[in-house]
Write a protein that binds this DNA or RNA. Structure first.
Lengths: 340, 340
DNA sequence: TTGTAGGCGTTATCAG
DNA sequence: CTGATAACGCCTACAA
């Protein structure tokens, strides 16, 4: 069906090798010959067989993006990440393949490793990995080019991860509220098996200690990054005395949940209660009230991660350590002076 | 580096062809030989080179999922679609590659066509395509195995699309409200270049005519499937007299927007205003109040689409027409009896 | 400037 | 039951 270099060669009375050179843009082809070849290629609707090309050089031409489907897929976190990857991959000849690591078969990393060993992908980008995933144990040993995005890893040996400065972000949020007069600051934590969530919580705890806030232990509530759960635990926070005057949520979704609950309890945000988030989702700016949050440059972070991975694949040199990206505090209308 | 069949063959003193047969599970291999081969394969950590395999049979082993990144990526519509694809692709040896059709270079279909001609993908799944996209013009002629998901196409020649029964869905929503006593029913339409949005609007118009509702023309407002825009146009609907007692939005996001506005105007939903949506997003059930909406079996729809595409690729036979999936009305708390 | 030989790893096919 | 050969489409390396 489809024309090959051989077909063009036949039409032109040349050898397929000359065709290969001409199409690859080698300078060692006589202009006249090149022209003839180009015309024939056009005539035949020729298009390189990338499959053969890649097979020849032993690469798949795909980067595997591994994520846990169930709720990551619909997160703008992944959305922005993918956009960042796209930017980095653009022009590299690599494209993105999407894999679900949620299913059980994935959870020991075997399946991902297989993808690589079978040459379905040339490397992996792992988005917001759970730090408990046994991925690491399995994958680390296989020396697969792979970069973890948005999550640092407890034991980073042989793994490169790109993540944001969670600690600094939470610290800045705490300071912001502190300066507004807040002392009764509560915290809704993320799932404990996310290293990033862990870092955020610790930063909050450290801040409280450093400033002798001495808040009751129930000021720290366990969330799971979901809005629904945040609503529930916010209820626990806002019903009991002494009621916090500010809540920091470990991500924006949970901040939204806290605001939902405040509204339900007829508490005004920010007059009666300040709420801070983390992530700066696209929706954070347009919600009611616009959310004060820590901006994470997700797209950039992803772009960086993909860039590192590409270089790794091309050069074969394992990048050394982790990469930390800066965050910034976006002060909007969900935080205000402490009441009284 | 990596072991090949040849390596195994050498270790076993056999021909690589025998190894191929043994590993492929052919019955024509002596059990003892097979065992020897299996052991060697294990010892060498052998894994088939899928790349070579695919090259040999002339297929990429990837299905391209094309979507316009900007907001589709973060939609649960795409999320559910991908999950559906995954189910259908499972076990087929095909995986998903993700492509952004938003950029200009994609909009004439050339790039997608190239993906196919270059054998980067074996077929395409187009999610929620704009019906104005010139994709169709370009792609139709190339006979690429491809299925459009969630959108019917004006001129379906040579294109198979799987979409839901938009008309029936809106009709059922209209009837539901009508039976609750509503007559002043307004409609927030979706972007006119989506065929599905068009169908939904027409279904509404038809219902109004059939029941002689004779509502003013401004009862139809133009939205763009986004929450923000819906808020604005809902304001136009709710500020003017005679105020509608019910609003149907062409998708859930816009229904949420309408509820936002109602809340802002101190209108209670559903006591003062009923609001209906379309899609049944995961969030529709847990929002406040839970949304009455038309359930679209997106995951199933996607699964079906991917199944059709797979068969097309395997058999080479173009499927005939479009496939329409059933919808169902989910009555929740955002609709109620007409006030007075 | 162009041609030839060979190989990438797998499988179909035919021969033994 | 196993082996030999060839082919998939391209490219590297060397020869003319």
């Amino acid at each position: 069906m489809r024309a090959t270099m051989k077909d063009i060669a036949l039409q032109c009375g040349l050898h397929k090798m000359t065709v290969s050179r001409a199409l690859a843009g080698h300078s060692s082809v006589k202009p006249a010959t090149r022209l003839k070849i180009m015309e024939a290629a056009n005539r035949l609707n020729y298009e390189v067989n990338v499959l053969a090309q890649n097979f020849n050089v032993g690469r798949a031409g795909y980067i595997g993006v591994a994520t846990s489907f169930p709720y990551m897929l619909e997160s703008s976190y992944l959305g922005q990440s993918l956009r960042g990857f796209q930017v980095a991959l653009n022009g590299s000849g690599m494209d993105m393949a999407l894999f679900d690591t949620y299913s059980d078969s994935f959870n020991n990393g075997e399946k991902l490793a297989k993808l690589y060993r079978q040459r379905k992908v040339d490397g992996l980008l792992l988005v917001a990995l759970h730090s408990t995933d046994r991925f690491l144990d399995t994958l680390r040993d296989i020396h697969i080019p792979m970069v973890v995005v948005g999550e640092s890893v407890a034991n980073p040996t042989g793994l490169h991860s790109v993540f944001c400065d969670d600690e600094r972000g939470v610290r800045r949020m705490c300071s912001h509220l502190f300066e507004l007069g807040h002392r009764r600051i509560a915290f809704i934590a993320g799932p404990p098996d996310y290293a990033g969530a862990q870092r955020r919580k610790e930063a909050y705890v450290n801040f409280c200690q450093k400033h002798d806030l001495n808040n009751p232990s129930w000021y720290i509530q366990q969330g799971d990054f979901s809005r629904a759960t945040a609503r529930k635990v916010a209820l626990a926070l806002l019903r009991r005395k002494p009621r916090p005057t500010a809540i920091i949520a470990a991500n924006d979704l949970m901040a939204f949940g806290a605001i939902d609950t405040a509204r339900e309890l007829k508490l005004r945000v920010p007059q009666d209660l300040s709420v801070g988030g983390f992530d700066d989702l696209p929706g954070a700016e347009e919600c009611e009230p616009p959310l004060t949050t820590v901006h994470q440059p997700v797209k950039l972070l992803a772009e960086r991660a993909a860039g590192i991975l590409l270089k790794w694949i091309e050069t074969g040199v394992t990048p050394s350590s982790g990469t930390i990206m800066k965050v910034s505090l976006k002060v909007r209308q969900s935080t205000g002076r402490c009441p009284q």
